[in-house]
Amino acid sequence: MGVDLIGNQLTESEQRLLDVYEALKRLCAEDLPPVAAANVRAALAQIHNAVNGLMLTYEHLTDLGV
């Protein structure tokens, strides 16, 4: 289990959120059909709010088209 931006241990729920976020990032790097590529990016933009809001990570995603 990791820690957040100020060193708190992540809860199980937080870790699962972070895992979903990282999985979406990895999907962005894949060659997906438009229906998946666009919706994965839309989902990643939204879930970034959750992981950023909960201090789990903070970064910009323009390199992934997000």
């Binding site: 990016r41 839309a42 933009a45 970034h48 709010n49 950023n52 995603l61």
Partner: peptide, 11 residues
């Protein structure tokens, strides 16, 4: 705004 930026604006 990028997609992520725009989502943040609503946030």
């Amino acid at each position: 705004d990028s997609r992520k930026d725009w989502a943040w604006i609503a946030e």
